[in-house]
């Protein structure tokens, strides 16, 4: 191993720590401090504020749906991509990753163009059938699904490749059908990867801003999620509420990180 001289090593170490400290650790710490400068009262007031509580409930609802949908879709696509051959598989596996590189604003625009009730490709038909997508929760769930789409797949696919199909074939030869094999053999083997993917999706879903902003219409009390609320409150000079809500979001995302850090060694085993 290349042994660096002590000053160089210290220099690199300080650069790394300093950069991360000034860019991430200190700013995040300041927001936490801001939240508590007025004492715990501000946090309590914020939580009892009906607009905040409503926004948090909406965020939880949208994120839950998006995670559930992405979980089912992600596991299905992962198994198909790894265990089956079909024409167009390579293209599909490349397209699956596309959502990670698309700007949230473009995601919002794309959904708007197809599903808005007046001029969208499918929007008027959907509204005729009684389904309002844009400026309502279905659109928000879709936007959230879009941005978090590949996260489960990216966790599950490598594990499926790694474990191979020997165990599944053994189960087949012992008389298990496709569903039984999946439930009793495949699922327990990919369990941790799935949990990991779900936690990542959850963090991403709770935090989505740009795409949701466009498709939700940002109607206070109806389609305003927690992240949209932070923007609105900050710009209305209710900075305390903005900080307190941000603190809650930071808390959740750090909890997600801790869960992931805790799971990672398990998954690696």
């Amino acid at each position: 191993m290349v042994e660096l001289s002590t000053p160089v090593r210290w220099g690199l170490r300080l650069l790394a720590i300093g950069y991360v400290f000034f860019l991430i650790a200190w700013p995040v710490g300041l927001v936490v401090k801001h939240t508590f400068t007025g004492g715990l009262g501000v946090l309590a007031d914020t939580l009892t504020d009906e607009s905040v509580a409503g926004a948090l409930r909406l965020t939880a609802m949208v994120a839950t749906w998006a995670v559930l949908i992405n979980l089912v879709f992600g596991v299905t696509i992962s198994v198909l991509l790894v265990r089956y051959e079909f024409p167009g598989k390579r293209v599909l596996s490349a397209l699956i990753d596309l959502p990670l590189s698309v700007s949230p604003v473009v995601v919002g625009l794309a959904l708007l163009l197809v599903y808005n009730g007046r001029t969208g490709w499918f929007g008027p038909t959907a509204e005729g059938a009684g389904l309002t997508v844009i400026f309502d929760s279905p659109g928000m769930v879709m936007a959230t699904c879009f941005v978090a789409l590949p996260l489960v797949i990216r966790e599950v696919v490598p594990v499926l490749v790694e474990i191979g199909d020997d165990q599944e074939q053994a189960a087949r030869s012992l008389g298990a059908g496709a569903v039984q094999t999946f439930r009793r053999i495949t699922l327990p083997s990919i369990k941790w990867a799935v949990v990991y993917g779900v936690v990542l999706s959850l963090a991403r879903s709770l935090g989505e801003f740009g795409a949701v902003k466009i498709v939700s219409g940002n109607i206070t009390g109806r389609t305003q999620t927690a992240t949209l609320l932070v923007e609105a409150k900050y710009q209305n000079f209710q900075q305390e509420t903005a900080y307190a809500t941000s603190f809650l979001l930071i808390l959740v995302s750090i909890a997600c990180l801790v869960v992931v850090a805790f799971l990672r060694p398990r998954a690696a085993r």
Partner: peptide, 20 residues
């Protein structure tokens, strides 16, 4: 017939044990 209906026992080179 698919594998699960053939009534055969199969033993794999690398055991294919159910790890969990």
């Amino acid at each position: 017939l698919p594998a699960q209906k053939r009534d055969v026992g199969f033993v794999f080179q690398h055991y294919a044990v159910f790890k969990h």
